[in-house]
Design a binder for these strands. Structure first.
Ligand SMILES: [Zn+2]
Ligand SMILES: [Zn+2]
Length: 823
DNA sequence: AGCACGCCGACT
DNA sequence: GTCGGCGTGCTC
């Protein structure tokens, strides 16, 4: 069963990282035959436990026996390391800083194709067209088995071949694209296109020839109708979608195909983000604005002293153009650049813009790629690809000469990984990574995070400002509507003040567009009995269910649980069930009544879920098929604002009520970001913010667009109440299916920590949502002065507390999540 | 993370 | 009597 590989000992050993949550590295012996190939950073095939094999990563090569029994590695998978020394050091920092194991970091860092394990499934590539007879013996056996069985786990492959060492072979087959990992069936990522229809020549450029076309079609009535429908559509818009034509002319593809054959129409694929939008003009402009020139010069000067610079530029100031210039310079020096964005901001628009400037010098790394594409980008980064545009996880790519890291939308909370370990912050980890490489960091945003701005104030970061919009575009005018007053005056129509409704009407009459922001999806967050106040709640979580009118059901936004609407109140039998609060769906619904002629669209998680929906909504908005767009925070990103005359924030209160210390900061950022969407080329845009609590200082600061005032007030509060950037926070969450177990565990765990931490420990406390996915939760919060020794000791203490609790009888199944810098 | 080992309740 | 539930500990 556990006999070792029948090879001679070499007295060479390796310590390896296993791609999972085991606490420490493990040591394996290296048989003579593999000694020459083994080196730090290559993967080796190892047996771990009685029956599982993994691709582990070599952390060290040792020449002395570890003094305990070892297994031998089964093979060396790679000829060259898959990561450089810098990445290994980065992994170690991430593990230490964010309190997780190296294995968890490895798991997050490597693309799936580099993480083989015995349960990994493979399939034959549908694209493989070679003759399997020509494959080498073992490859042939695998390929043959796959033609019969379609799918095999690596465990089964091992059985079929009857040998232990299979990973190098698997790697080779993956490299040659003969096999795929199972989850790979994701289709190749490509730029989104829409099928459109246009006239062929000469009809397109010479309208007078159209009569000939009609003559050609004379006997085909359906085709004549289709052509008329086409011409009708063409009067209102530049591009006509095939779907639209089908709908209006009530024809199907056969009719259009017939017309294609006759040389009248043609169907073509059009890329959705059009060329020549306002942002494009800025990015590709040959001439820099004076402000951009100044910013670039200042960045150069400040980089001589500072490693990190915060570039604070209003929406539309042309920050991207500044990045382009800095990227060009780095490329000329043969350096690598990483351009990091929040995942949702990584839209086709920005990708294509950079591709138009840098051609194939740019790679894009994001979650929509399939496994093969990921590995390709991985390998090119290792070979020195000049520019990688990516989301958080791109930090782990094996750069070797990284000299510039651009982190755009620096303030965005989605840079923080929330759930599985490592719970790292893309911006903070990016700054550390840059330091490892001696690279410079440019943080860009219109609304800096309090931390980053603080760092500019204490001289740690440089600061460069771009206060004006490119091409003299004016910043929008902001108006606050006091909902208390409006309510008293009886001038509210549901959630809309008269001010907002009138302004919307006026905007639409001028042919401009409106964006409405409400940061909550669904119809209403609460569905309850009007007689006894009973509320529909999730059966797995302690939250009320959100009513979704479109699907006519109730949904939990924490676990996805869905249920039908109750006919009567289960508590009192009452038949009067009502909603409370409102989300985007309700806003959309009511607008259809208040503005019957408006073309209303909605953009939130529910409407963009299907494959092309997101792109389609953005495209509809850009081309005017939507003139009122209702949405959640998604509307703050990727929309061309050229024709947006008005932005409305329906409820600022909901943003300000958030139960953590960042509520004010988030609200300020979101409101200014969404306000930044307003602004037309030649006219000033307008922003209306509705609030019940106009006395809240954040409202006034947004009104004035006054970041400085916001910052000064906020930073004082942070100091007074022991919050970042003055104090460091670590949140620890205990979870268990039984409330009494988690309560008792929290008691013990808290006592253990409190003995050393005293008042620095807050809790135990039931969090805002006390039960999620059937797990009961208890939170602790540790507030630490910014003293490296204290922080290091505390992390050790937490590790000790975890160990202490888990070995205590009855608590071994309590889950502990440590989150460093949680908010 | 998985997997084996071991100790208690409810079935053939 | 055994089957299988989970709680516990270990994996080089
Ligand atoms: Zn009731
Ligand atoms: Zn739930």
């Amino acid at each position: 069963m556990s006999e070792l590989h029948p090879t001679s000992d070499s007295n060479t050993y390796v310590t390896v990282i296993l791609p999972m949550a085991v606490p420490k590295p493990y040591t394996y012996a290296v048989p003579e035959e593999w000694v020459s190939k083994v080196q730090v950073g290559v993967r080796v095939e190892v047996q771990f436990g009685p029956k599982r094999q993994y691709a582990a990563l070599v952390l060290e090569v040792l020449n002395t026996s570890p003094g305990h029994k070892t297994k031998s590695i089964l093979s060396v998978i790679d000829d060259t390391p898959i990561i450089w020394a810098e990445q290994l050091r980065f992994w170690q920092w991430v593990g230490q800083y964010y309190c997780c194991t190296l294995g968890e970091v490895m798991h997050a860092a490597l693309p799936a194709n580099l993480k083989l394990a015995s349960e990994t499934s493979i399939t034959l590539s549908p694209l493989f067209e070679g003759d399997i007879m020509e494959l080498e013996d073992r490859a042939y056996l695998i390929a043959e088995a796959l033609t019969i069985q379609h799918e095999l786990t690596l465990e089964q492959v091992r059985d079929i071949l009857g040998i232990k060492t299979i990973y190098p072979l698997i790697r080779d087959l993956l490299d040659k694209r003969i096999i795929y990992l199972k989850e790979d069936l994701k289709e190749k990522f490509k730029a989104k296109t829409l099928a459109c229809v246009r006239l062929r020549e000469p009809y397109a450029s010479q309208p007078e020839t159209l009569q000939d076309a009609f003559d050609k079609l004379s006997r085909a009535t359906r085709q004549v109708e289709a052509l008329m429908a086409f011409l009708q559509l063409a009067r209102g818009q530049d591009y006509i979608r095939r779907e639209e034509l089908y709908k209006l002319a009530k024809v199907d593809s056969s009719v259009i195909q017939a017309m294609e054959k006759k040389g009248i129409l043609e169907v073509y694929e059009r890329e959705v983000s059009r060329i020549g939008g306002y942002e494009d003009e800025i990015v590709e402009a040959d001439v820099l604005s004076a402000q951009q020139e100044r910013a670039i010069a200042e960045i150069h000067t400040q980089f001589e002293e500072k490693n990190v610079i915060l570039l604070q530029g209003v929406t539309g100031s042309g920050k991207t153009r500044v990045y382009v210039e800095l990227i060009r310079e780095a490329m000329r020096r043969g350096e690598q650049v990483l351009y990091l964005l929040p995942e949702i901001a990584l839209t086709t628009q920005i990708i294509e813009r950079l591709q138009r400037v840098f051609g194939d010098q740019v790679d894009v790394y994001h979650s929509r790629l399939n496994n093969n594409e990921r590995v390709e980008i991985w390998n090119r980064a290792k070979e020195g690809k000049a520019l990688v545009l990516g989301a958080r996880s791109a930090l782990f790519l094996p750069f070797r000469n990284l000299k510039l890291v651009i982190i755009d939308e620096e303030h965005d909370p989605s840079f923080k990984q929330q759930d599985p370990n490592p719970r790292y912050h893309g911006r903070d980890a990016g700054i550390y990574l840059a330091q490892l490489f001696g690279a410079k960091v440019l943080l860009g945003t219109a609304t800096p995070s309090v931390e980053s701005f603080y760092n500019t104030q204490v001289g740690k970061y440089g600061l460069v400002r771009m206060p004006e919009r490119f091409g003299g575009l004016e910043l929008p005018e902001v108006e606050i509507v006091d909902l208390k007053k409006a309510l008293r005056a009886g001038s509210m129509q549901s959630h809309f003040s008269v001010t907002l409704l009138n302004e919307m009407k006026a905007t639409l009459e001028r042919g401009e567009q409106v964006i409405l922001f409400q940061n909550r999806r669904g119809y209403a967050p609460v569905y309850k009995c009007s007689t006894c106040n009973w509320t529909c709640e999730c059966i797995h979580c302690d939250v009320s269910l959100t009513y979704h009118k479109g699907q006519n059901n109730l949904k939990c936004h924490y676990c996805g649980y869905q249920t039908q609407l109750p006919k009567a109140c289960p508590a009192c039998g009452g038949k009067q069930l009502i909603v409370q609060g409102f989300g985007t769906e309700k806003v959309e619904d009511e607008l259809k009544i208040f503005l019957p002629d408006a073309k209303i669209g909605r953009m939130d998680l529910d409407t963009v879920r299907s494959k092309n929906a997101h792109t389609k909504i953005i495209n509809d908005f850009e081309e005017g098929r939507i003139n009122v767009l209702v949405g959640t925070q998604m509307v703050t990103k990727g929309l061309d604002f050229e024709k947006v005359g008005l932005v409305g924030v329906l409820s600022a209160d909901q943003l300000l009520q958030f139960p953590d210390f960042r509520a004010g900061e988030r609200a300020f950022q979101l409101m200014l970001q969404v306000a930044g969407r307003a602004g037309r080329k030649h006219k000033r845009g307008k922003v209306i913010i509705q609030s019940h609590n106009v006395a809240n200082p954040v409202i006034k600061e947004v009104l004035d667009g006054d970041f400085k005032a916001f910052y000064s007030r906020e930073i004082m509060e942070r100091q007074e109440f022991f919050y970042p950037p003055f104090y460091r926070l670590i949140r620890i969450t205990l979870k268990h299916k039984k409330p009494e177990v988690v309560n008792a565990a929290a008691q013990k765990y808290g006592n253990f920590l409190r003995a050393k931490l005293g008042d620095r420990l807050r809790g135990p406390a039931v969090p805002y949502v006390g039960r999620v996915r059937s797990y009961f939760l208890i939170d602790f919060l540790i507030k630490l002065e910014r003293n490296p020794q204290l922080i290091a000791n505390t992390k050790d203490l937490i590790a000790a507390a975890d160990h202490f609790l888990l070995q205590e009888e009855g608590y071994s199944s309590v889950k502990i999540a440590v989150d460093v810098d949680p908010f």
